[in-house]
């Protein structure tokens, strides 16, 4: 009796929505999707399934993952940082220019990190104190920062070859690329902070209901400003990793990856309305997007098509988020 009566349809729909409404369902769906992707590419390409290729995916996505990791709590708290990738570009530029002026490489790194923190702090002040829309503030900041990076270099790529520094991007520990380790440690740390600390609770409360959070004496502004600074710092670290990997600082090297950063956070199930999300979802999403890129490249698909694919995946993910929101009764 395979006829679908209205009763069975509505029962199925109820089951579907109740499944999608579970807190972990988003991450579970992503995990299934990721495994499916790995299986498909393993069948399609003989080069895909190897430790070497997996580690290469990991180290390719590491600097993007770093930015997406800190972007996740920021979006959960109701913020958004579009300037993070531009900050990554500026960081490399600042380090290479200062180093060329004869400054010690680690001092140059320290200056660049400080500059990034200041930019994050400004983002935070504009969005909290002046209550401006973060989309506009950080879009403006993105333009300022990437423009400055171009001005400082004249648009040219600067070499940055300092063995001690390049290790950050090229080194390995027990065969595992250092950038990948850095990214995984960041995710682990943020997971602990978000789920196990007071600050983490404040993040969810600030994004879930800022006014209620303020009225029960949670420092909402301070929480959000901190997250903007952390996001900018992750941009700086991503810029350092990228410049160290490439042995050069290009002013616009990271900007093109902003879309991937935001896409990963949303694909990972973090609600753009705030209050909901997890870093594990973002990590899986980063792996999915990286695997998609890698697999398509191995199959000789033009990189132009990869942009199309990423967009399609993103829109599917956003639709899924909307369905999940409804299932949760918003």
């Amino acid at each position: 009796m395979a006829t679908a009566t209205p009763a069975t349809i509505s029962a199925t729909r109820r089951r579907m929505t109740s499944l999608l409404g579970r807190p972990w369902s988003g991450v579970a769906v992503l995990l299934v999707f990721y495994i499916g992707l790995v299986v498909v590419f393993s069948v399609l390409s003989p080069f895909f399934l190897s430790v070497r290729n997996m580690l290469s995916i990991g180290s390719n996505v590491a600097f993007i993952g770093l930015m997406a990791a800190t972007g996740t709590p920021l979006i959960i708290a109701g913020g958004l940082d579009l300037s993070v990738a531009a900050i990554a570009g500026l960081t490399g530029v600042v380090i290479s220019l200062l180093h060329m002026q004869g400054l010690d490489i680690w001092l140059a790194v320290a200056v660049a990190v400080f500059v990034a923190a200041a930019i994050g702090w400004i983002n935070g002040l504009f969005t909290t104190r002046l209550k401006l829309n973060p989309l506009i503030v950080t879009l403006g900041m993105m333009s300022i920062v990437s423009g400055l990076a171009l001005v400082m270099t004249g648009g040219l790529t600067r070499p940055l070859m300092v063995p001690g520094f390049n290790v950050i991007g090229q080194g390995r520990v027990f065969g595992v690329p250092l950038p990948l380790i850095l990214m995984l440690v960041t995710f682990l740390g943020l997971w602990l902070v978000l789920t196990r600390t007071r600050f983490g609770r404040h993040v969810y409360a600030s994004g879930g209901n800022a006014e209620a959070a303020r009225l029960i004496g949670i420092p909402v502004e301070r929480t959000v400003v901190t997250l903007y600074i952390v996001s900018a710092l992750s941009g700086a670290v991503a810029g350092i990793v990228l410049a160290a990997m490439l042995g050069a600082a290009a002013p616009n090297s990271a900007g093109q990856h902003l879309l991937t950063v935001i896409a990963a956070i949303i694909l990972g199930g973090t609600s753009l309305n705030g209050g909901r999300g997890s870093v594990w979802g973002t990590l899986l999403a980063i792996l999915i997007l990286g695997t998609l890129n890698n697999g398509l490249t191995l199959m000789n698909v033009s990189s132009f098509w990869q942009d199309v694919t990423r967009g399609v995946v993103l829109m599917l993910a956003v639709s899924l988020d909307q369905i999940r929101s409804r299932a949760l009764g918003d």
Partner: peptide, 27 residues
């Protein structure tokens, strides 16, 4: 202005004096 809708009853109750429900660094 009252509830944080996505959090649990436990989290909503503990939120206002979170520092009292900590052991070391962690909640």
């Amino acid at each position: 202005e009252g509830i944080i809708a996505d959090l649990t009853v436990r989290e909503n109750i503990a939120l206002s004096f979170q520092e009292r429900f900590e052991r070391g660094l962690f909640v």
